[in-house]
């Protein structure tokens, strides 16, 4: 396959970026999207041009490191991560525009690489259960209802990729936030800190500069792990309960 790639190039965080166009030949439909970029980079190195920087690690859809806006869609046209997207989803002759996640709390570091440490800080603000090592009771002493445990699991699969933010017209991280609130809030172990957790995490989210959610729903359709919108409803519900308690 032959492609025309339009790639965002930006030397560093403060530099002006621009979209550069590269023709690329010899792309196989069996390549993953990132392997296609590897090919581009081999070509650039041969030409003496610096390769395109992009984030990735596991390349199997679980670490959440890869992050590309492909033709205006976070992680591209399929419901999966960029690393699991394959070139057979494109056609010979296509033009593909590749941009980094755009959100001010995710500043660009270089080319397609952004800084997502805001997510870590949101977790630090309360996205955990305080269970000191060694003090845990016997695991089966507190049964967890299966349906709640299932819901917790389904949303605990969030990989922290940030596609939800990238896709949201408001630049909101509410889906990410809601996934964590719901995961911990559905488990018996998560109850003691439930109300302070949601207040603290939402506070940190806003403090980081993410936008507010107006329930547009782009986030859920961009999410490679199919986290459903109801986590945002849960987030709102928990927040309201917390506020009623005067937190």
């Amino acid at each position: 396959m032959k492609l025309t790639l339009k790639v965002w190039r930006q030397a560093n965080a403060t530099a002006q970026g621009e979209i550069k166009t590269y023709p690329l030949d010899g792309v196989s439909p069996d390549m993953s999207f990132l392997e296609m970029l590897d090919l581009l980079n081999e070509q650039l190195v041969t030409q003496g041009e610096e390769p395109v920087a992009f984030d990735h690690d596991c390349r199997e859809g679980i670490c959440g490191m890869c992050s590309l806006m492909i033709n205006g869609e976070a992680h591209g046209p399929e419901v999966t991560t960029t690393c699991q997207l394959h070139m057979r989803s494109f056609s010979d002759g296509d033009t593909i525009t590749i941009e980094p996640w755009r959100a001010d709390p995710f500043p660009v570091i270089k080319d397609l690489v952004v800084d997502r440490s805001a997510f870590d800080r949101i977790i630090q603000s309360g996205g955990f259960i305080s269970a000191n090592t060694g003090s845990a009771p016997e695991a089966n002493s507190v049964p967890a209802p299966r349906d709640k445990a299932m819901r917790a699991f389904n949303v605990a699969t969030c990989i922290g990729c940030g596609a939800c933010v990238a896709a949201c017209p408001n630049g909101s991280a509410s889906l990410f936030l809601g996934a964590k609130i719901t995961h911990l809030g559905e488990l018996p172990q998560g109850q003691p800190e439930r109300w302070s957790r949601v207040v603290d995490m939402v506070g940190q989210h806003d403090h980081e500069g993410f936008g507010g959610c107006t329930n547009i729903g782009e986030c859920a359709s961009a999410c490679p792990k199919e986290i459903p919108l109801d986590v945002i409803s849960q987030l709102n519900k928990d927040l309201r309960t917390a506020m009623k308690q005067g937190l």
Binding site: M69, G72, E99, G171, G211, G212, T214
Partner: peptide, 27 residues
Amino acid sequence: VLARRAGQARTVKYAVKKNKGSSLSSR
């Protein structure tokens, strides 16, 4: 306030952006 926050959350716009999960009304 929401509109301003949204504006500040993305000061650099996408060159290409598609919508696939939202209604026209929501946008």
